[in-house]
Design a protein around this nucleic acid. Structure first.
Lengths: 231, 231
DNA sequence: CAACCAGATTTTGTCGACAACCCTTCAATT
DNA sequence: AATTGAAGGGTTGTCGACAAAATCTGGTTG
């Protein structure tokens, strides 16, 4: 259903529509590959097509939409190769973020993130790591590392672009049984390296952490194309 | 002067204005920090404010403009810390690009790039490495590595976002005497590693190459804040 | 029966106009 | 003299309408 854009002050309509539309895309309300109808969307959000088109332009630059002239905007649809490319890019950027966080993250932020990991541990113990909250916890951790790097550009690319794509596809990247504990453990190791101000180790561990996700995904894909190998 | 937007077919006015405006920003025609006047720009490019505002929205998402509601758009103005952040981000992405290029770049592209480096060498020998052409040669090299990585996302972030920022500020990042030969030498080493399919070495060399640029810039900045050391 | 070609309809691209807001100017007040 | 406040002009934000393009429909023809 259409939520007609709760009105916030200080923001332009175009910005509010951008946020609402991005949210709808990322939560899967608009499926990957589906076409966006401008008059319909404009009615839905209660705005004219002007601000809506500005929002579409923004989201195109953020790589969430792909528009073809005279044909319209479609939600981006990543194939397997492009999802792997997303992991590869994250690996580089998040590795660097961890490296820089080891140099620059404030002690108080490290302590707070440590507490957050305790909360994640409790949650996993309680509900066995329900996939949704597990993902949210994972995003939380990576979000804070990206913020702790003290590099606004790096943070912006990760939060505004890559994490949104990742959120879109989290259902395809769903984690396996017992993965939650392992991920939490890796988070702890990364944070320990940051706390030790060991930049090299922090980067290496983060890269492995992201690469592990990519490899699990590659594995899950190759099972379909070559199912004979695993049983 | 106003070049009223040479008309190309198949592209939206908004897209053409985006390209023209980005070009004007990147070449320094609009200085960093300067304000963009919408009616004036619309007249200049011979379009209405609709497509112009879409172009502004796109360039804001690409981090070339920063717009504040009800106040307008300004060309981005990077301070020293933000330029360092740009180098740090490039270091991670270009390092990864070199790593992936070592795995995926086609032999024919490697050979062609090798020939391009020969041309650069000849150019440096001829005119002593005039700063402008030297920069263009540098961009050429990095552009091809980014393309050779076989990762459209990584390539897009580098070409659409980071390299544009870099071009904007190349005058502040101008190279010193004799730097051209050294850069060319580093390019040769990187390409050799790629040709050997040595991903680890290619990444390391590229990271050092970018880091060297960052360090020269940091050096040039600290000279002003602490001039007594080098007098 | 398939392919192709009009006509009609929907959708996108663009424009000009109006309203809201910001900044400047300048006069009045403390 | 400095600050405040109101009027004015200018800029931004938004809208509805028109024109061009694409898509859909149905009928015709090979």
């Amino acid at each position: 259903m259409a939520e007609p854009l709760q009105l916030e002050t200080g923001l332009t309509l175009a910005e509010q529509v951008t946020a609402a539309l991005q949210r709808a895309i990322v939560t899967g309300e608009f499926a990957p590959g589906s076409k966006l109808n401008e008059p319909e969307l404009a009615r839905r959000y209660g705005v004219s097509r002007g601000p809506l088109r500005e929002a579409i332009s923004r989201l195109e630059a953020r790589r969430l939409l792909s528009v073809t002239p005279n044909s319209g905007a479609r939600v981006i649809a990543l194939d397997t190769a492009e999802l792997i490319a997303l992991f590869e890019t994250r690996e580089a950027l998040e590795g660097q973020a961890a490296r820089l966080a080891a140099r620059r993250m404030a002690e108080v932020d490290i302590a707070e993130l440590s507490g957050l990991l305790d909360a994640h541990a409790a949650q996993i113990a309680a509900d066995g790591g329900c996939a949704y909250y597990q993902d949210e916890g994972d995003f939380d951790f990576h979000y804070r590392i990206a913020s702790g790097a003290g590099n606004a550009l790096l943070k912006g690319i990760l939060l505004d672009d890559l994490y949104q794509l990742l959120r879109m596809y989290r259902f395809r990247l769903s984690v396996s049984e017992g993965r939650a504990e392992q991920a939490l453990n890796e988070h702890r190791q990364i944070l320990a390296a940051i706390s030790d101000r060991d930049a090299d180790l922090a980067e290496m561990l983060m890269r492995r952490h992201v690469a592990a996700g990519r490899k699990r995904f590659e594995q899950s894909q190759s099972e379909y194309s070559a199912p004979a190998l695993t049983h």
